[in-house]
Design a protein around this nucleic acid. Sequence first.
DNA 1: AAGATTTATACGCAATCGCGTCTATATTTA
DNA 2: TAAATATAGACGCGATTGCGTATAAATCTT
Lengths: 84, 84
Amino acid sequence: MTDQIARSEKQLGAILRRIRKQANLTQSDLGDQTHLRQGTVSRLEAGEPAIQLRTLMAALSALNLELVVRPRSKGSAADIEDLF
Amino acid sequence: MTDQIARSEKQLGAILRRIRKQANLTQSDLGDQTHLRQGTVSRLEAGEPAIQLRTLMAALSALNLELVVRPRSKGSAADIEDLF
DNA sequence: AAGATTTATACGCAATCGCGTCTATATTTA
DNA sequence: TAAATATAGACGCGATTGCGTATAAATCTT
């Protein structure tokens, strides 16, 4: 399984959505676990830039994920997604 | 160099501060590059939960960093920092 | 295709964002 | 320790959050 690299809100949201679906959870399921509205989860996954950190961390926690901060690896796949 | 793992806003802020200092930048320097106030950078690094994703991503970008999302590694060093 | 489920959007609300600016504390350096 | 630099925190402001609640629109299932 390839790394889930995010350099933008959109990429981050896409990653979360992918993982949530792999876990067979609906946005509402996730919302129940995190006390976030389903609509809020939707906006997080859509990559809205003004979503708050607390919202992101709550989602990560519920999905049992962690964040790693590291120097940008040159020419990673993430660049391509960014082009559109 | 050990991984920079964040499971909370506080850890994330601490990581950013560490890296910024290693790069010999002040909060104002970073603010200039990102169009963020020095005070905003301060709050980001302090781990305020309501900071927006756009603010985080701007800082990451200016520091040439990227995020990796991955399953929580059990018993990592990050747990200890969480105990405060 | 119809029905059920899931996701995207909307409303008013209180709270809080980041901005612009300024000042009080640290913290570092001479 | 004095002076310089850096960080934390405040002010009012306009904008937008996530909440609570609904409903449209899109996506599965059967």
